[in-house]
Nucleic acid binder design. Sequence first.
DNA 1: ATTAATTTTGCAAGTTTTTGCTGTTTTTGT
DNA 2: ACAAAAACAGCAAAAACTTGCAAAATTAAT
Lengths: 249, 249
Amino acid sequence: MLKEERQKYILDQVHLHHRVLLNDLSDSLNVSIDTVRRDVKELDHEKKLKKVHGGATSFGFMTFTKDDGNIYLKSKKISIAEKTISLLSDGQVILMSGGTTNMEVAKLIPKKLELTVFTPSLHVAMALLDHENVEVIFLGGKLLHDAKFAVGGTVVNALSQLRVDMCILGTGYLDAKFGLTEFDWEVIQVKQAMIRAAKKTVILTVSDKLHSVQKYKTCDMTAVHTLVTELDPSDPLLDTFRPFELVLV
Amino acid sequence: MLKEERQKYILDQVHLHHRVLLNDLSDSLNVSIDTVRRDVKELDHEKKLKKVHGGATSFGFMTFTKDDGNIYLKSKKISIAEKTISLLSDGQVILMSGGTTNMEVAKLIPKKLELTVFTPSLHVAMALLDHENVEVIFLGGKLLHDAKFAVGGTVVNALSQLRVDMCILGTGYLDAKFGLTEFDWEVIQVKQAMIRAAKKTVILTVSDKLHSVQKYKTCDMTAVHTLVTELDPSDPLLDTFRPFELVLV
DNA sequence: ATTAATTTTGCAAGTTTTTGCTGTTTTTGT
DNA sequence: ACAAAAACAGCAAAAACTTGCAAAATTAAT
């Protein structure tokens, strides 16, 4: 197994579980603990994850300690959020999924902007309610304990009766070949319904999550209209996505 | 378990409950009290929380209780919440409205209690999601900016299809003659639907709100099965409510 | 294809961290 | 003031980390 594959696997595991133990990694990768240790050390140095005693955690893990080492990731997300907001205009009706990037969008919406937002995310809803001129409609359903996100038939059903201007998907992994993928089946159902309900689909993703594939597929790249990352639109990392009819913001 | 996980759990608990006991932490984390003590000491040194004798508190809580003189009100509500929890049992399906008293109930639910809870309140939903064994279903709809509470046809509609064991109404003013009253018309609609959907109606109210009347009426006293206040059930202040078939907790 | 240079990997010895336990001191409530 | 609970300090075992080094694998060059 190549070193790159290993490190990618490690990153995926960290993103998936928010934390990993070096022992588990060494076990499932069939390499010595030293090798894993070195890999994690490297990834930590590249700010891709945070090495801790006995394992590693993702930056998003520490929800309450905002001023730790994840300033990099946070600033990326804010940059993405700012770009996203330029896509919005008065009177629009939009859908927003969950995720920390969408949270930043919700927080940064200008006070004067008049919007109607449907969302199944508790956190996003909460953040949106700070804005007097935003009408917030929560898509109710069974809530996932970890993601604070509503899933299930009620949500999908409610979405099937909507036809909104835009749908902003926050989390998720993106790959030119495999499209948008996730690791939670129930979330997939909701996101697919969101895409169906919207005229345009906007994907927000930090560049770390580009060229990554997870277990389940939400949609093809052809379903995506706009891709927002913190990278410059001309960045070569985005080349594989150019064949599609995307607006790279 | 990673040290980081532990500390995150501690921080989450502190932020959620505003105060934690070292013993409880040691218990639920399955580590020695010394380890918890060291963790809290560290977090205190990092200014993430405030260590106090026997436990820790969040910074926000301290200022809240000191500046606001409402420690009394808060302790009243906690007392009410504790009484309310004694009404709950494993496997029940219940409805919870919003309000700070219901929030306290949501926070204080024992970790082991298995419940299914429907609620239109963002705050209550958030607090409930802390409990692994509680299934939380959010009743979606248009959210009120101030109350963080879902109202409107969707909520009422969803409620009309439910038949649950109990409905716990948190806010509201109570009077023997005029029944339960509110000042928000849209909230009334939802509460009425909640009462219709439940076999039993439980009202939580601090004694300050007894014998008060607001603009709109939710229901008569005859619709109420149980009344929970911080007062002793034999308190003469409750005399006017005794003619009704109430359980005074 | 073979050899040399470079990188990567695994191992062992020594160091540091973490954790639970001991007994002692301090704090708290009555 | 006294008993109970909590905090502290020191200690020892276990787990995790570091470093240096040699074997193995990968890459580059002849």
